[in-house]
Simulated assay, not measured.
Amino acid sequence: MTTSHTTDERITELEIKASFTEDLLDELDKVIVRQQDQIDALIRELGYLRQQYAEPAPQGARNLRDELPPHF
């Protein structure tokens, strides 16, 4: 009976470890999905900024470097 009892304990420990491993895998999957969403948002924002940079400035737009500060 000792061998059977030891085998049952080992199987139980393996089942517990497998359960924790599944939980960890689920959590890591959620992190990956969240990071991919963030990456996608950053890519969209970068595309928007590149598009803004590539478009010429509208006529009449003022350049703040050409203006004097109010204290002059």
Rank of each mutant, 00 (worst) to 15 (best):
P69Q: 06
D66I: 03
M1G: 13
F72Q: 06
S4A: 15
T2S: 13
P56R: 11
E22T: 06
L64W: 11
R62N: 04
E9S: 13
V33D: 03
T21Y: 07
A18Y: 06
L64Y: 07
L25I: 08
A18D: 11
E27V: 08
T21A: 15
L28M: 11
Q36N: 13
L64Q: 13
T2F: 06
H5C: 08
R44Y: 13
N63I: 05
E9F: 05
A54V: 03
R44F: 07
P69G: 14
R10G: 05
A61H: 05
I16A: 10
P70C: 00
S4R: 13
L42V: 01
D26R: 09
T2W: 07
G47H: 02
E13M: 10
R34N: 07
S19E: 15
H5W: 04
T6P: 04
A18S: 12
E22N: 09
G47R: 01
T3A: 12
E13K: 13
Y53L: 11
V33K: 10
E13C: 07
D26M: 04
R62L: 12
Q59M: 13
E15P: 00
Q38A: 07
N63P: 02
D8P: 03
R34I: 00
A57V: 08
I43Y: 01
L28D: 01
E9G: 05
I43T: 15
S4I: 10
L28Q: 09
Q59K: 14
D66H: 01
A54N: 14
D37C: 02
L49Q: 14
A41H: 04
I43N: 06
R65P: 03
L25W: 04
